[in-house]
């Protein structure tokens, strides 16, 4: 198989994935926009006015980067986990497995599809945020790098979840019981400085805390952590998850008998 053939296979998977989430935009693009819009109105506007400043910024300005990051994480993850599991459930994954498509192309296609949805929702949320807060991007390169790497990492995490999932329940357990608590405790709504010493240490083991803060640094120019550590953590997660995905595909975990 020539390189061009591999690229066509990759492009085909990405187009199929984008077409899928665009076809069901009422389920994929609108609900996160409404949810995050409500956060802006309730927490940012109504409650936020009484809170005052957080980390040296208006409360609304403070929560915007975290809410954008939250939408990117949730949507990158859920796109890949639901799409790949649905391929398994309908057995249409067999179309890919019988074709001469290398494992890394399968992974790349689904991950880029997940990133496309994560970033599309992130863009919608960002546009909505402009109606509520005055946003300036302090460090554009860091902002873009962090959002891309975070989306990449959670798309791969969603892929692994889908590989091991045997039922629709299995694809909602991790987002509900792991992802959501980690995001909420990852400094989206508060600065770590508000926490007692012990809980600051506990927050330090939450990887999402670093991602949210690095993204906040990219937009506002201020963060609770050193951005360097955020990139190190993101890089480690990216490498480990990539290796895990390829290992599962090679072993055909959950795909072949």
């Amino acid at each position: 198989m020539f390189t061009n053939h591999k690229f066509i296979a990759f492009e085909t998977i990405v187009i199929k994935e984008v077409r899928r989430f665009m076809r069901i935009w009422l389920q994929t693009l609108v609900p996160p926009a409404i949810t995050i819009g409500l956060y802006f109105v309730i927490f940012g506007n109504l409650v936020g006015r009484r809170i005052g400043e957080m980390g040296g910024f208006d409360y609304m300005q403070f929560i915007v980067p975290g809410l954008i990051m939250m939408s990117v994480i949730q949507n990158s993850y859920s796109n890949v986990v639901s799409s790949f599991f649905s391929h398994k459930f309908q057995r249409s994954v067999e179309e890919l497995l019988v074709a001469p498509v290398p494992n890394y192309i399968i992974l790349a296609g689904f991950v880029v599809g997940g990133m496309a949805r994560g970033l599309a929702v992130g863009a919608i949320v960002t546009i909505m945020a402009l109606f509520f807060a005055d946003l300036q991007v302090a460090h554009p390169l860091i902002t873009v790098s962090v959002i891309l790497m975070t989306s990449l990492v959670f798309s791969m995490a969603g892929f692994i979840n889908a590989i091991f999932a045997n039922s629709f329940d299995d694809i909602s357990i991790i987002p509900t019981f792991v992802l959501t608590p980690l995001i909420y405790l990852g400094g989206v709504f508060y600065s770590i400085q508000l926490l007692p010493g012990f809980w600051q240490i506990v927050s330090g083991v939450n990887p999402i805390f670093y991602m949210v803060n690095a993204f906040r640094f990219g937009i506002l120019g201020s963060s609770d952590v050193d951005v360097y550590w955020a990139f190190v953590i993101l890089a480690i997660f990216a490498v480990v998850l990539y290796a895990g995905c390829i290992w599962c595909l090679r072993r055909s975990t959950g795909l072949r008998h």
Partner: peptide, 26 residues
């Protein structure tokens, strides 16, 4: 295969076109 193994939500033409893409056809 013996059992239907394509997406039930895709259009007929898209199913065949997608498979062609997996095989690297322009």
């Amino acid at each position: 295969p013996q059992e239907v193994n394509f997406s039930q939500f895709e259009k007929v033409r898209d199913i065949v076109m997608t498979q062609a893409g997996y095989y690297g056809l322009t």
